[in-house]
Nucleic acid binder design. Structure first.
Lengths: 149, 149
DNA sequence: CTAACTGCAAAGTGTTTGCACTCTT
DNA sequence: AAGAGTGCAAACACTTTGCAGTTAG
């Protein structure tokens, strides 16, 4: 449905690992390749299952370890910013969020503070839209001071 | 910084519970009140700590149970749609997401498919914006068939 | 009085860590 | 060889569940 994401080649991976002082192991390579092949925002378990077919001895911990390393080095991004624990919303009015990617703080922004969100193209057939939610991702004033990024 | 969320009153809560055949226990009431008072998208643990001061015998399981019930009855919303597990993004190009709130599937939508996101007002002082991320929340064609909602 | 709820402890998930062994460089 | 990575098992953090006793309606 969507254009394939721009894959970094294995050469890119080698280069990136080298720059970061990381070894390029067979496991690492296969995990990375598999992640690139799976366009659907996989969870670690799903990656594990796939990679296991190529390297049966691979352990789930290695998948986690390497995913973490990839995220830390900017080869991947974590989609689920607030995965740690259940976060609740008591404001049921339409609004959006300001999210600090460092301390995970969330602040509401009124929907009316934005120009209306509009699509140029139709969405995939059959998808029923309930609402749009905009996340403004960045660093809060507190964290911006502490981090160079 | 932001207008207080529109609180449902205790009378509303009583009404909602009644309609749903739920008892309105003291614990339930206090948990609800506390949730409404905490504007900052609390995690269950944070609610627990606060409510405990009023009801020292309260257990964390009761907080979880009631939060779940509140979400099921539309009194609260869960902010962390993908909390269960780590979800990864291999597409590092600017893009947004189509999220099925039922099966949690995520599909990418190109940033260029949207009119540019624009704010009318300035953000709170000191917030450093890295990027905007739009989530189009709804039901995928698959789930839309199975659920009336 | 009865169905629903609470508190506790135990069981589940998903993720991280310590350590001995192995591999990349 | 030396440092980095792997696999395993144990530890963790967060959440859910089963059940006996309690409470709201």
């Amino acid at each position: 449905m969507k254009a394939v994401s721009p894959e970094l080649s294995v050469a890119d991976l080698r280069e990136r690992c080298h720059q970061a002082g990381l070894s390029l192991t067979h496991q690492r390579l296969v995990i990375y390749e598999q992640l690139m092949k799976m366009g659907d925002h996989p969870a670690p378990e799903a990656v594990f299952e796939r990679v296991r077919k190529k390297i049966p001895s691979l352990s789930l911990a290695t998948v986690y370890n390497n995913i973490k390393i990839f995220v830390e080095h900017g080869l991947l991004r974590e989609l689920s910013v607030h995965r740690g624990s259940l976060r609740l919303e008591s404001n049921l009015d339409p609004h959006h969020h300001l999210v600090c990617t460092n301390c995970k703080a969330i602040e509401d922004i009124d929907e009316s503070d934005f120009q209306p969100i509009r699509l140029k193209k139709a969405l995939p057939k059959g998808f029923t839209v309930h609402r749009f939610s905009v996340e403004v991702l960045g660093l809060c004033s507190n964290c911006a001071g502490k981090i160079r990024q």
